[in-house]
Amino acid sequence: MMIARQDVFPLELNEVCFASGGQRIIERVSLAIDGHVRTVILGANGAGKSVLMRLMHGLLAPNSGAIRWCGQPERAAAQAMVFQRPIMLRTTAIANVAYGLKLAGMGKSERLAHATEALDKVGLAHLATRPARVLSGGEQQRVALARAWALSPQILFLDEPTASLDPGATHEVERVIGEIAASGCKIVMTTHNLGQARRLADEIIFLHHGRVVEYTPASIFFAAPRSPEAASFMKGELP
């Protein structure tokens, strides 16, 4: 696992810009993200958190600048993403988990075994044969986490994964994220929830109007943010 990790990280962004519909969303972002810690992208609504994450994941292409994985411009294959709203196909929970493995070219019996294991790890083995779309929001999000985890990614992107969940479901999802991180997978997550950032982050990327204002260890950030924008965000002054 360690050898494979060294093949992918650091994830480097160099002067990355992204605009859409004449609006500049990400402005000259340069970062080098290491593979060993949990990174949380923090910022107000509209700061560009989701767009930055989609650029990293390769769902969007930058207008200018470069994104490199360990110096290589190719998108690293072993990555996965979980979205704010879980997207479930009209089939069973286990078939949703197995779908990603099918796309990855895994044989039928093997992917069924993998999917069963992944559902078990998120605590949903008992719902495996239930139609995914009639599960609760929290359960669907855990199926989405299982689908991502089953791919054995080296990096997992999470875009506001608990923004539409109640506290109980949020707790469960955070527990699963912690376990995925403990299994050796790099976590990059966006949130506007300070409590969640405190619980999960090793380091913070603070975005404001599409720019990286701070990129610091979480302990330092929460003790004393250096930028006035981050300080006022933490005081709840920014929208």
Partner: peptide, 20 residues
């Protein structure tokens, strides 16, 4: 519109996404 990001994230080529 609802699913394309998830399907692309999972590595589905457009023809595969269409079948799905």
């Amino acid at each position: 519109a609802e699913t394309h990001e998830q399907l692309r994230s999972l590595g589905a080529a457009p023809w595969r996404a269409a079948l799905t």
